[in-house]
């Protein structure tokens, strides 16, 4: 029943014996240290599970791990690099764009992909881009503002000591 599945997550190949039915979100979350990708529904409506697949946001609850073999997966854990926060992370902190934090990884990965494709998005473009995600806490106002902040501060931010 099990097959060997190799998925490249955040630049590293992760190989495990899994059933073909293993969902990508579970494959990621069962990799030590990578529980930042969440799930909130079963029907690809909530966006808590969004990761980047070859640079594009996808809902990892509706992708089989086996289907991700040979593709590059990026999760929230990859945003911070060498101790530098991604501007999206920084913006979410600066503008109080998260409360319970559960939708945050999916929102941030969606935002990262948006800014990669469109470095200067309008409010309407931001709202459309994140419309595949549900946030129960923020009413989206500060998320939209945080993504604009990130657009206006594109360089990775130097962290204070």
């Amino acid at each position: 029943m099990s097959v060997q599945i190799t998925v490249n997550i955040n630049g590293e190949d992760v190989t495990r014996e899994e059933e073909p039915r293993k969902l990508l979100v579970h494959f990621i979350r069962e990799t030590p240290g990578l529980t930042g990708t969440h799930w909130g529904c079963d029907t690809s409506n909530c966006g808590a599970c969004v990761v980047l697949m070859d640079g594009k946001p996808v809902k990892s609850c509706t992708v089989l791990a086996a289907m991700a073999q040979g593709h590059q997966i990026r999760t929230v854990e990859s945003l911070e690099r060498d101790g530098r926060l991604d501007p999206v992370q920084q913006g979410f902190h600066e503008l109080h764009a998260l409360q319970c934090g559960f939708c945050t990884p999916g929102m941030m990965m969606t935002a990262r992909a948006l800014l990669d494709a469109n470095p200067d998005p309008s409010e309407a473009e931001i709202r459309t881009a994140i419309s595949g995600g549900i946030c129960r806490c923020t009413g989206y106002k500060n998320i939209v503002a945080a993504i604009r902040w990130a657009a206006e501060h594109p360089a990775t931010v130097e962290q204070e000591a």
Binding site: S44, M53, V58, T62, S131, G132
Partner: peptide, 9 residues
């Protein structure tokens, strides 16, 4: 149709 993330797949 659906949302932008779903439209990627």
């Amino acid at each position: 149709i659906a949302d932008p993330v779903v439209r990627n797949r």
